[in-house]
Each structure stands twice: as C-alpha cells, then as structure tokens.
Lab assay of single mutants.
Amino acid sequence: SDPSEDRAPESARVGNIPSSTSALKVPQLKVAESAQGPAAAHTTDTAGYNAMEESVSREKPELTASTERVNKRMSMVVSGLTPEEFMLVYKFARKHHITLTNLITEETTHVVMKTDAEFVCERTLKYFLGIAGGKWVVSYFWVTQSIKERKMLNEHDFEVRGDVVNGRNHQGPKRARESQDRKIFRGLEICCYGPFTNMPTDQLEWMVQLCGASVVKELSSFTLGTGVHPIVVVQPDAWTEDNGFHAIGQMCEAPVVTREWVLDSVALYQCQELDTYLIPQIPHSHY
C-alpha cells in the first residue's frame, strides 16, 4: 500500500522531449479497484494519511515538438484524482505547456489535490511534501474552472485551506508558501528511527529536511552541544517487537515522539509542542 509513485524524486515530463529516451519516465500509475468507486480507492491508516495514492495507467502520452515553447517555470503533480480527472489535468497541462510529473521533486511548483467545495482535502504524501516545500497546493477546481473560463486563473483563489485531520481552515499551505525564510524545523536534528508504514523513510526524512531540520541516520550520531535540539521520530504501530520503542531512551537523551508530530506540524506549518506526542521511555539503569 506504499505510494510507489511518490517513492523517489524522479520526474516524468509531459510536453517536451528529453535529450535521451532513457530520461523519459512516463507516468504509469495504477488505479485502486473498488466496488464503491474512486472515493473508496484510498486506504487510510490510523494517522489519517492516505497511503494508496491515486492515478491511472495510460499509454505513453503524445509528445509535443521539441521546437514548441515549453513553460520551464511550472511543474505539476496530482493527488487523489480519478483517472478521468487526471486526464483533464493532463490536457490542461499540455495546453498551457506545463510539465506534469508523477513524482514530486524540487522543481515541482504545483500540487493539485482532490478537494471538496471548500478546498479541504485528504492528507497524502504529496500534500505533506508540497507544503514542506512551500509549493502551491491547490484544489482540482483550479484546473476545472480555468478550463471553463478558457484562461489560467489565479492560484490564490484555489489554494487548499485545510484537511480532514488537522482542520478545515488552518491555511497550512499558504503559511508554508509565505514562510520559506522561517522554516519550522530549523535548529532541530531529527532521527527517523525504526520501521514506518505507508510512507518510505527517505520521503519522511526529505520532508523534515525541507522544513529546515538536519537528518541524523543513527541514534549515536546526534550532535551533543548547545543550540541543537535532537528529536527521535517513530511509528509505534509499525513495530513488531512489543514496546521496543520504549527503550530508545536508553540509547540517547533525545525526546522520542510519534510520526504524528511531524505530520501535524507540516500540515499546519507550525512546529507543534512535543508534549502530546511524547512516547514514555524506560529510564537509564543506574548501577
């Protein structure tokens, strides 16, 4: 159930021909089969995070001529859309010479989310990475209204306002976009420790780096000194050995919190207090 199309920051360009055919990675995205229709094609874990990302398996898109002007500035990904909605975005992107990729990268400028009429969405990996990267996180209605009015409308009017977990109007995407000089995790050293489900560890690490944190791979690698705040992030329900995560405190002095601390902080683009996310640790033995 991992969102495989989000696994690594590679891009698939639509609308320009790469210098070599080997560089072309066409979105071959799968549809989750469901008797209840597209709305039930998501699996949500206890964290309220949509693990099964969206989309559609299609034939290789038709490439435009390399001489045609390509908008190098805009690059989009989509999240939560049905196959039909994805194809509408594809046509919109081609019309406006926008790069459409299946994986979010540093070059991505827009994340197009499936939302309700009030621009509230589910939480997906692309949603988190879009906010963390200060990108435009907009409703699919931006595409449909632009098509209806036959011009590209202003993104401000379609920015995602909230999500089904953290609140319907928290304005996290807007706050992140306007606060890239004040990253929420700066001054923190974060170790993403142990197993994680539904989200590859490297993507979680990239997320906290985008928010200004330094990533530490091992508990023994924390910088011990003033001005640096170490934090260990774990996902308790992913551990097979009972309560192993309670013993992390015996290996390092850092506070240990659940992954929800990261996800909530990123969604709201406000660093949350650790208290409600802390995992009790077995104290050091004193002999």
Rank of each mutant, 00 (worst) to 15 (best):
S1A: 06
D2L: 08
D2G: 01
P3V: 06
P3A: 08
D6G: 07
D6R: 12
A8R: 07
A12L: 11
A12T: 04
R13V: 12
V14N: 08
G15L: 11
G15P: 04
N16I: 15
I17W: 04
P18Q: 04
S20I: 06
S22R: 02
P27L: 06
V31E: 14
A32Y: 04
A35H: 03
A35R: 09
A35S: 07
A40C: 10
A41E: 04
H42K: 06
T43H: 09
T43L: 06
A51F: 03
A51S: 11
E54K: 14
V56Q: 07
E62N: 01
S66P: 08
E68I: 06
E68A: 14
R69P: 08
R69S: 08
R73I: 01
R73A: 14
M76P: 01
V77G: 04
V78R: 05
V78S: 05
V78D: 03
G80L: 09
G80H: 08
G80A: 10
T82I: 13
P83F: 07
E84T: 03
E85I: 05
M87N: 10
M87E: 13
M87F: 08
Y90R: 04
K91G: 08
R94T: 12
K95Y: 14
T99Q: 12
T101R: 09
N102P: 12
I104F: 15
T109S: 12
K114S: 09
D116R: 01
D116Y: 01
A117M: 15
C121A: 10
R123P: 01
Y127S: 00
F128H: 01
L129A: 06
K135S: 14
K135N: 09
W136G: 00
Q145E: 05
I147W: 11
K148N: 08
N154A: 08
F158M: 02
R161D: 03
V165F: 03
G167T: 02
N169E: 04
H170S: 03
H170D: 02
Q171D: 08
Q171C: 06
G172S: 09
E178L: 13
E178N: 05
E178H: 12
S179A: 07
D181S: 09
R186V: 14
L188M: 04
E189P: 12
E189Y: 02
I190S: 00
I190V: 14
C191L: 13
C192G: 03
C192A: 10
G194V: 03
F196G: 07
P200R: 08
T201Q: 06
W206L: 12
W206R: 08
M207K: 02
K217F: 14
E218R: 14
L219T: 15
S221R: 11
F222V: 13
F222Y: 04
T226M: 13
V228H: 12
I231K: 01
Q235E: 14
N243A: 15
N243W: 12
F245W: 13
C252T: 14
A254C: 15
A254G: 12
V256E: 00
V257C: 13
T258M: 05
W261R: 01
V262S: 01
V262M: 10
L263Q: 04
E273R: 11
E273V: 05
Q281A: 11
P283N: 09
P283V: 09
H286G: 12
H286Q: 15
Y287S: 11
